[in-house]
Amino acid sequence: MELPIRLSKDSREPIYHQIVNQLKALIAGGQLVAGTPLPSIRVLSKDLEISIITTRRAYQDLEHQGFIRTSQGKGTFVAEIEDATKQQVKISSVYQTIEKAVDTAVQYDYSLDQIEEIFQEVIRSQRSSRKGD
């Protein structure tokens, strides 16, 4: 199984961190349920075109945080995680996405007031399109 992980090599976020965050999102979002086998470090490294040093670091981080577990000789699996943790991952992923959007706008020289206006505009158009459903 090839995991739907998309690395952005242009991002300032370190590669191992991108893997950790995306796997956490897949687990918290329920796309990867507890017990799902994950690719070996070597196979994931091949798929993502990175070294095993980077992949191992990501897996160790995820294991440390309780998202995955490794059993000797059997491989790596998605761990059982609590609902509170899932909620935490979801909320922090929403925050990160919005923060990233704000960063992009700032890079294009928009003021924070202008960004707020854009944000409200997006919310308004979402509201009206959802009403139409």
């Binding site: 191992y16 091949k46 070294s51 040093i53 980077t54």
Partner: peptide, 20 residues
């Protein structure tokens, strides 16, 4: 495949680097 790149240039060892 590679984790490390050992780079040679006309016999000179430029260095061995972890890919990322």
């Amino acid at each position: 495949l590679s984790d490390y790149l050992c780079v040679l240039q006309n016999g000179r060892h430029v260095g061995t680097f972890e890919k990322e």
